[in-house]
Amino acid sequence: MTRLTEEARGVYVIAVTPFAEDGALDLQSIDKMVDFYLEAGATGLTALGMMGEAPKLTGAESLQVVKRILARLDGRIPMVVGVSAPGFAQMAELTRASMDLGAGGVMIAPPGSLKTDEQVVNYYRQAAEFIGNVPFVLQDFPLATGVHIPVSAIARIVEEVPTCVCLKHEDWPGLEKITALRAAGTLNRRISILCGNGGVFLPEEMDRGADGAMTGFCYPEMMRDIVHHCSKGEGDRARDLFNAYLPLARYEQQPGLGLAVRKYVLAKRGVIASAALRRPGAGLTQAAQQEVDMLLARQEQRLKELD
């Protein structure tokens, strides 16, 4: 088992959950998907995230997905499991089971009921007590959770909860938050910062001090290359590549439609057998499919021009 640490960097791809047309789990596609992410250069995987349709799975199915992915990974890269839950009992149970199967850590988002900084800090303090000595990712995604976590609260969590090793940064706008967190003296120890939002701000986030991405996109190669070139100081090359993918990344960021776009493209690429979302959730209309196909064709042309 490779445990998540403060040194996490690169691209931790948020894995989709493949379903058959009838809504059943597609375990064979999970195997193909894991192979694809490894070939695309992922340095880690994250399962059961918000874009992994985790709330649509039963408890048994969640463990089935975790077990299948970990078996295919075979320890080659670490895996983070989303364990956010209404109560700490469910969170602790899924955490224990996932870690026993070989996961490297877990990810915890705050519930929308938290209204003050003190409540946020106390929530993560209690969550850490329930899951024990397990490294976790603090998911800061106010657009989805409705919980705004200021730099001062993050600093307190990092200081008071040593098992918090990574921030999944998805505030929007949030570039100034990264700068503040990386400023000398803000945190009492350095933690990993991996960014979300489909990678649409990744070049700027890397420039501000992020260590990589923890998000999904139907072309994870984009995130791999952006992180690689930014880390080597090759900002112009990173942005040229980013610009080639940007129209599709922008289209995939549509609220309520993004996962359908991602699954449609992954199915076209042969990564998963079906683009089906488990209900409630619908696929793309014919008009949307035609728009995505056009974006794919133009993306391919732009990439050829960069070679």
Score class of each variant (00 low, 15 high):
residue 1 M to R: 13
residue 2 T to K: 05
residue 3 R to C: 06
residue 5 T to V: 11
residue 5 T to R: 13
residue 8 A to I: 10
residue 11 V to C: 05
residue 11 V to I: 06
residue 12 Y to T: 11
residue 13 V to A: 15
residue 14 I to Q: 13
residue 14 I to W: 12
residue 19 F to H: 14
residue 20 A to C: 12
residue 25 L to C: 10
residue 25 L to W: 11
residue 26 D to E: 10
residue 26 D to T: 07
residue 27 L to E: 12
residue 31 D to M: 09
residue 33 M to P: 01
residue 36 F to I: 06
residue 36 F to T: 09
residue 38 L to K: 15
residue 38 L to Q: 15
residue 39 E to L: 04
residue 41 G to A: 09
residue 42 A to G: 09
residue 43 T to F: 00
residue 45 L to G: 04
residue 46 T to L: 05
residue 47 A to Y: 10
residue 47 A to L: 15
residue 53 E to C: 04
residue 54 A to T: 02
residue 56 K to Y: 11
residue 56 K to W: 01
residue 56 K to E: 12
residue 57 L to M: 08
residue 57 L to S: 05
residue 57 L to C: 13
residue 57 L to Q: 07
residue 58 T to A: 05
residue 59 G to Y: 04
residue 60 A to E: 15
residue 60 A to Q: 14
residue 62 S to E: 08
residue 64 Q to P: 00
residue 64 Q to I: 10
residue 67 K to G: 10
residue 72 R to V: 14
residue 75 G to V: 09
residue 76 R to C: 04
residue 79 M to D: 06
residue 82 G to D: 08
residue 85 A to G: 00
residue 85 A to C: 02
residue 86 P to S: 01
residue 94 L to V: 14
residue 96 R to S: 14
residue 98 S to T: 01
residue 100 D to W: 10
residue 101 L to V: 13
residue 101 L to Y: 12
residue 104 G to P: 08
residue 106 V to I: 14
residue 109 A to Q: 13
residue 113 S to R: 14
residue 118 E to Q: 14
residue 121 V to Y: 03
residue 123 Y to H: 04
residue 128 A to T: 11
residue 129 E to P: 02
residue 129 E to C: 00
residue 129 E to H: 06
residue 130 F to Y: 14
residue 130 F to K: 13
residue 134 V to W: 10
residue 136 F to H: 14
residue 136 F to V: 10
residue 137 V to I: 13
residue 138 L to I: 08
residue 142 P to W: 11
residue 143 L to P: 01
residue 150 P to Q: 07
residue 153 A to T: 03
residue 154 I to C: 01
residue 156 R to I: 08
residue 156 R to M: 04
residue 160 E to Y: 07
residue 167 L to R: 00
residue 170 E to K: 04
residue 173 P to C: 04
residue 174 G to C: 03
residue 175 L to I: 08
residue 175 L to D: 00
residue 177 K to C: 00
residue 178 I to V: 15
residue 178 I to S: 06
residue 179 T to D: 01
residue 182 R to Q: 01
residue 184 A to I: 07
residue 187 L to M: 04
residue 188 N to V: 09
residue 191 I to E: 01
residue 192 S to Q: 03
residue 194 L to G: 00
residue 195 C to F: 04
residue 201 F to C: 03
residue 206 M to I: 07
residue 207 D to N: 14
residue 207 D to G: 09
residue 212 G to M: 15
residue 213 A to I: 04
residue 216 G to K: 03
residue 222 M to W: 06
residue 224 R to I: 04
residue 226 I to L: 12
residue 227 V to A: 11
residue 230 C to A: 08
residue 230 C to N: 05
residue 232 K to Y: 11
residue 234 E to P: 09
residue 236 D to N: 09
residue 239 R to L: 11
residue 252 E to G: 04
residue 253 Q to K: 02
residue 256 G to C: 12
residue 257 L to K: 15
residue 258 G to L: 04
residue 259 L to V: 15
residue 260 A to D: 02
residue 261 V to M: 12
residue 268 K to M: 11
residue 268 K to C: 07
residue 269 R to C: 02
residue 273 A to N: 11
residue 274 S to C: 10
residue 275 A to E: 15
residue 275 A to D: 15
residue 278 R to N: 05
residue 282 A to C: 13
residue 287 A to S: 01
residue 288 A to K: 11
residue 289 Q to C: 09
residue 291 E to M: 12
residue 292 V to E: 05
residue 299 Q to A: 03
residue 305 E to D: 05
